[in-house]
Design a protein around this nucleic acid. Structure first.
Lengths: 356, 356
DNA sequence: CAAGCTTGAGCAACCGATTGCTCACTGGAG
DNA sequence: CTCCAGTGAGCAATCGGTTGCTCAAGCTTG
């Protein structure tokens, strides 16, 4: 086996070359303590000349500050989560922090393993998107981190019954505003399409609640027949049959709210194929504003998920907590970031203005 | 300011509690050296009882191995790059390595800063997707890392004139196969749509070369009029005019190769609006196989970009190099990962089989 | 019973930095 | 000329582990 590490210049090497102590070198480069200006300059120059790069590993051990955040997500390949990570990274970078990325592959055990790792790496804080069917008490590993003094912020997917700080998306309010948009356009038979509900997909549930809220406030009776639950697990039929049936009834809905843009895009294709016009015959809206939303024809009205903002805010909270420690007010806490309504031609045929 | 760190249990704490030396504890937990089974067990149990988590910071300093990889990407929010990161993470996780994620925001200076950081963190290897208009010598920071014994692998975007190891996508060969697919279907007037070429978008260039290769081999004369270069920088017209004009000529192409699925999806909409049928009147294909490709109507035939595989392979190479050091054969080297042809209804109206 | 080998565990040095404290030297005041 | 404050720099301890070497105790063997 070949030698693994060409040894890099250490502070001792540099000190020896210059004929001073490591202490002096350290002080010169960190600009702390008093010393002759000339000495400092000599050291700084030598450091540059020999490309001295102080080991963050050693500095970390000495200073007890890692300048490192842990980021745990279920699946980094998904747009929604990578946006989130970007939000976190932005804030971290500004503050001179790095992030250790952990991808759980939607596996609880792996999530736990990664949390153990982050503990041992002594990261200063952890942001995490929990995932998976959770038993009660499956947040124990998060609580343990907290008890060790590593603050944890949950993002995006709500963890029920926990005492952890969470930064979520205001799905209920978002759903309501989206339906209100349709109500304002005169629709009153509005369907809602959701994927097979799974208890851990908390956003799905919230969006539906928002739908109900809006109808309730508008005084429209809730019609269970207008809630379509589609199952895309076995074969990918995605509820084609149900939707078709629903749209062929004489009392068909004039607008459809779909839980996610991807699904909405597929339904748009089906609707067009049935010979119905969008939005004249049926208006349709989605959630999240993924790239496809602006590219389908007609472009899809949707509620833009504030993923980046969630990550951004979670990181901010984390840093505030790191800084203030137990003096941090209202900790743990729960915050919601609002969605943004993006109106396109799937609800209004003549757009008021050219929205991106 | 509140106290920052609730001090965690150290090896010395544990040693004192047990009345043994830290040496013994270390040996017991790492299962190295010989010792009485009973002593080992006592220590292991105490470690569990007191939730002792050895500091990786200290272990790293002592062992000189960080078990850490650096991953540098231009924009983590982009699907293509987050897929790549996933590929890297998979391999790293298997080997017990963590990754430090660096997002350069397409800023060369930031890329340099991050490389400096990774150097100082003493990561054991770095994978990077370079980006941006590069001057000659803008790979100096990568070479420096190499010279410090940190292997570097370039991914996805080719860095010309460098002596670094690179894992790229076989764009030229992919372009050729895609065009061959069209040739086999009988097309002979085939247009190619590319975005305004920018020297650092090496994949774009390769795809076009592949197109020319295929035509050349088929004995079809190259017609410059069939190369459309669209500019999407000023306002987002995306070459609508050029394409329309091109399709209205009597000698219009019967198939169109578009550099990227997103663009292809937009052109499909335009083509359909012109009253032309896909694929009967005009076939169309894209590159990358992003989510939208399977969702547009008709679904888009495309060359799937092997992003995940590129990340996977890059990480594998990195580990091999880390392990073998200078004994690693053929280093630096350059590898290409092939694309995968995904045939959908934008080229064949009756699909042979149900391709996802 | 003495010599030799094996076993189990600790001492001390080290990894590469930081930091409190000490101390020699310098220069001005008395 | 002496005293003292201020300046510049180094010693040694520390951060939390790992590891080569030493050594005492226990066991086997002749």
């Amino acid at each position: 086996m070949a030698e693994k590490t060409k040894k890099s210049t250490t502070i001792h090497d540099l000190a020896e070359i210059l004929g001073v102590s490591a202490t002096t070198v350290s002080r010169a480069l960190s600009n702390r303590g008093r010393m002759k200006a000339q000495t400092r300059q000599r050291i700084v120059e030598a450091a540059r000349k020999y490309d001295y790069r102080p080991s963050l590993v050693a500095q970390t051990l000495a200073s007890q500050r890692t300048n490192m955040l842990g980021v745990v997500v279920p699946m980094i390949g998904d747009t929604i989560y990578s946006q989130l990570v970007r939000g976190v990274e932005q804030v971290a970078f500004e503050r001179g922090y790095n992030i250790t990325l952990c991808n759980t592959d939607m596996d609880i055990q792996r999530e736990k393993d990664y949390l153990d790792m982050l503990n041992r790496r002594r990261v200063e804080g952890i942001v995490v998107v929990p995932f998976g069917k959770r038993e009660l008490g499956d947040d124990a590993h998060f609580l343990e981190a907290e008890s060790r003094g590593i603050p944890v912020v949950i993002m995006e997917e709500e963890l029920p019954n926990t005492s952890l700080t969470q930064v979520l998306m205001a799905g209920r309010e978002g759903g309501k505003r989206l339906v209100n948009h349709l109500l304002e356009l005169g629709h009153c038979r509005i369907a809602f399409v959701r994927q097979m509900p799974e208890p851990w997909k908390t956003n799905s549930q919230k969006r539906l609640q928002g739908y109900q809220d809006a109808l309730g406030e508008a005084g429209i009776a809730f019609d269970p027949q207008l809630i379509l639950t589609v199952d895309n697990t076995n074969g990918g039929e995605f509820g084609v049959k149900e939707l078709t049936a629903c749209l062929q009834k004489p009392s068909r809905p004039t607008a459809i709210v779909v839980e996610h843009d991807f699904l909405a895009a597929q339904y748009m294709a089906m609707i067009l194929k049935m010979g119905l016009k969008i939005p004249e015959d049926v208006a349709i809206v989605g959630f999240d504003d993924v790239e496809i939303a602006s590219l389908v024809v007609p472009p899809l009205t949707t509620m833009r998920a504030p993923s980046g903002a969630v990550g951004h805010r979670a990181a901010e909270l984390l840093f505030e907590r790191i800084e203030k420690g137990d003096a941090m007010p209202n900790w743990p806490r729960q915050e919601s970031i609002p969605y943004k309504l993006v109106v396109r031609q799937s609800t209004i045929s003549v757009p008021a203005m050219n929205i991106k």
